[in-house]
Structures are given as structure tokens and as C-alpha cells.
């Protein structure tokens, strides 16, 4: 049985992909800074006084002492307790802000991911696009894509995966979303990466055949993604290369 979520939508953690944006470069620093400021403002508006005070202090501590001292740094403790301090619906946003305040690099993100709960891992995945410019953090995305935890899968197929995942892994990520019921709306830059992808189209068609043969419905999202795999028409210029085929 499933139980629909009852909470209010949490603040967006990343901006939607922009059509025509540069594909293989990280967002400019000013964009990232603006995103973080907007996220903090949106989260702060939703927190009660005690939670807001906790968050302000956690972010100040993280900014002042980003390095570790002792067995575990203060900001990592704050990362762990964000759920009970801010409430489960706001924990992701609070954790992303703490990771930004601590200026966590790929090594620090890998450490807190591997030492984290599923909730902490999800926040690390959501923080990747703003904190790691290159492909160094791909092993974390690959780890999350191996799980069957749909919350981790949804976070793993965000803008960082769109930017860095190679074509084979990306196609399997899309198929796994369909397979496990993760809405393909979670897949960042789906239009750009799917366009003209004949191999993805084949995989989707095969999956549809398998479902039909079993007498099971074909997920509605499958048809939507399949339509996106059509090559771009001449009026849109040549099909965008993936640039990641390997």
C-alpha cells in the first residue's frame, strides 16, 4: 500500500535546467550563490523561531569552522541532527545549506555521504551541483543509483547526474526511474539528454514490450520519455550531441 505525502512542498533545492544552457559546465558562482541565498530565505520563512535560531547558529558555525577538529566536526553533527531540529520536511534544505556554509568539497561530501543516514545521503546528492564543479563526486551518484531507495534515486538523477553521468549509466538511470516509479520529472535535463538518443528509445520500447507481454500497464512516463528521444527537427538545428558517449 502507499500513503500519499501530506506535507507542504519543501523549497526547491535546485533551479530547473534552462533550455540552451551550457551543458558541461557548472553553474557560475554568482548563480550558485543566488540559489543558496534564495534557498535560505525560503527555508527561514517556513521555520519556527527555535528552528530558525538553530539553523542560523549551525550555518555560522559551519562557515567559521569548515575543517574538522576532533573525531567529528561540529557541522557534521549539525548535519546529523537537522531532521529533529527543523522537522523532516525541511531537513533536506537545512542540510544543503549547512554543506554550502561548510564549503564541503568532494572529499568531505564523500565522507558525510558514506557515514550518513539515507536522509543525509539524499541531501549530499542534492548539494552536488552547487558544490562540485567536476566529475569527482560521480561515485556517490553511482552508489545511490545502485540502491532501490526511491528517495535516493530521485535525488541522484538531478543536475549533477545530467552534467556528468555517461550515456550508458544515464540511460539505465532513466529506465530505473520508470522501473521503480520515480517520476521522470525528477530527471534533470531530460529533454536535452534524451533528444536523438536511439539507444534509449530502444530500451524504452523493449521495456514497454516486456510490460505488455506480462499483461501489465506501461508507465505513462515511458511514452513521454520515448517522445523526447525523437531527433530534433531541422528548425531546431542538429541533434545535440551527448558529449558523454564512451
Amino acid at each position: 500500500m502507499t500513503h500519499p505525502p501530506t506535507h507542504q512542498p519543501a523549497p526547491r533545492l535546485t533551479r530547473p535546467a534552462e533550455a540552451g544552457a551550457e551543458h558541461d559546465t557548472a553553474p557560475r558562482r554568482s548563480d550558485a550563490a543566488r540559489d543558496v541565498a534564495e534557498l535560505r530565505a525560503a527555508l527561514t520563512a517556513r521555520l519556527d523561531t527555535a528552528a530558525r535560531r538553530w539553523l542560523d547558529q549551525a550555518l555560522d558555525e559551519a562557515a567559521a569552522h569548515p575543517g574538522g577538529h576532533g573525531p567529528i566536526s561540529t557541522w557534521e553533527l549539525r548535519l546529523a541532527e537537522a531532521g529533529r531540529r527543523c522537522g523532516p520536511d525541511h531537513a533536506d534544505a537545512a542540510r544543503v545549506l549547512i554543506l554550502h556554509a561548510a564549503r564541503a568539497d568532494a572529499d568531505a561530501l564523500a565522507r558525510v555521504y558514506h557515514q550518513g543516514t539515507a536522509d543525509e545521503r539524499r541531501a549530499v546528492l542534492r548539494a552536488l551541483p552547487g558544490l562540485v564543479p567536476g566529475p569527482d563526486a560521480l561515485p556517490l551518484v553511482e552508489d545511490a543509483l545502485r540502491t532501490n531507495d526511491t528517495r535516493l534515486l530521485a535525488a541522484a538523477v538531478g543536475p549533477y547526474a545530467a552534467r556528468h553521468l555517461d550515456a550508458h549509466q544515464w540511460r539505465h538511470a532513466v529506465l530505473k526511474c520508470l522501473f521503480t516509479g520515480v517520476g521522470t520529472g525528477h530527471v534533470a535535463e531530460l529533454d536535452r539528454r534524451a533528444r536523438g538518443d536511439a539507444e534509449l528509445a530502444r530500451m524504452l520500447a523493449d521495456y514497454a514490450v516486456e510490460r505488455t507481454a506480462a499483461g501489465r500497464p506501461v508507465p505513462g512516463d515511458l511514452h513521454r520519455v520515448l517522445a523526447l528521444t525523437e531527433p530534433a527537427t531541422a528548425s531546431h538545428g542538429p541533434a545535440a550531441p551527448h558529449g558523454k558517449e564512451s
Binding site: P5, D149, R151, L153, T180, G181
Partner: peptide
Amino acid sequence: DVTAPDATHEGNSI
């Protein structure tokens, strides 16, 4: 309060 993951297809990824 349990918030079931919304991303399950007619059941669950299990």
C-alpha cells in the same frame, strides 16, 4: 508521521 516515498509505481521498489 510517516511520509511514504511518493515515487513508487503501484506498490514499491522492493
